[in-house]
Simulated scan of single mutants.
Amino acid sequence: MKLDPSGCSGYIMYSKKIDLAVFQKKIDKYINTRGKIYSKWGLYADYADCVMVIPPTGIECIDEKPTLVFGVYTK
């Protein structure tokens, strides 16, 4: 799942067992709060770099933890 509709923030791995509606509300709250903080402190993301964000190509188990893989699988 993309963290931010702009595609600039990255991706989140999550279990298929969660309540997706509740999870999406948490993500929306995070994005809204981040926007308020950015406005308050005069911070601005450079969205020109968004073009370079690519989706993950898969998931691997690294150090016994699921990890998003970008590019070629190592296995």
Score class of each variant (00 low, 15 high):
residue 21 A to T: 14
residue 7 G to D: 00
residue 21 A to L: 07
residue 69 V to C: 04
residue 14 Y to V: 05
residue 22 V to Y: 08
residue 19 D to N: 15
residue 22 V to D: 13
residue 74 T to F: 07
residue 70 F to N: 02
residue 60 E to Q: 11
residue 34 R to S: 07
residue 29 K to M: 13
residue 32 N to E: 14
residue 10 G to D: 07
residue 30 Y to H: 14
residue 47 Y to Q: 03
residue 69 V to N: 09
residue 36 K to G: 06
residue 56 P to A: 05
residue 67 T to V: 00
residue 21 A to R: 15
residue 6 S to N: 14
residue 42 G to N: 15
residue 55 P to H: 00
residue 74 T to I: 12
residue 57 T to E: 04
residue 19 D to Q: 14
residue 40 K to R: 11
residue 18 I to Q: 01
residue 33 T to P: 00
residue 21 A to S: 14
residue 74 T to Y: 12
residue 15 S to E: 06
residue 62 I to W: 04
residue 14 Y to I: 04
residue 16 K to C: 03
residue 25 K to T: 03
residue 25 K to S: 08
residue 9 S to M: 11
residue 10 G to I: 00
residue 44 Y to T: 14
residue 10 G to W: 05
residue 35 G to M: 11
residue 5 P to F: 02
residue 69 V to L: 06
residue 63 D to H: 12
residue 27 I to S: 06
residue 68 L to C: 09
residue 37 I to N: 11
residue 25 K to Q: 12
residue 56 P to T: 07
residue 3 L to R: 04
residue 46 D to R: 15
residue 1 M to N: 04
residue 26 K to D: 01
residue 75 K to I: 10
residue 64 E to K: 04
residue 11 Y to D: 00
residue 24 Q to C: 08
residue 75 K to E: 09
residue 63 D to C: 08
residue 36 K to D: 03
residue 45 A to W: 13
residue 4 D to W: 03
residue 29 K to W: 11
residue 31 I to A: 02
residue 49 D to F: 15
residue 56 P to H: 02
residue 20 L to E: 11
residue 58 G to Q: 04
residue 48 A to S: 15
residue 43 L to N: 07
residue 4 D to I: 01
residue 74 T to N: 11
residue 65 K to N: 15
residue 50 C to G: 01
residue 38 Y to N: 10
residue 15 S to F: 10
residue 4 D to M: 00
residue 45 A to F: 11
residue 48 A to E: 12
residue 70 F to D: 01
residue 68 L to F: 04
residue 30 Y to R: 07
residue 51 V to P: 15
residue 72 V to H: 14
residue 22 V to R: 14
residue 12 I to E: 02
residue 9 S to L: 12
residue 62 I to H: 05
residue 74 T to H: 12
residue 45 A to R: 15
residue 29 K to R: 15
residue 1 M to E: 07
residue 60 E to V: 09
residue 62 I to L: 13
residue 54 I to L: 10
residue 48 A to T: 12
residue 22 V to L: 11
residue 35 G to K: 13
residue 63 D to S: 09
residue 37 I to V: 09
residue 49 D to K: 08
residue 72 V to S: 09
residue 48 A to L: 08
residue 41 W to N: 08
residue 18 I to R: 06
residue 8 C to N: 15
residue 13 M to Y: 08
residue 47 Y to H: 09
residue 52 M to T: 07
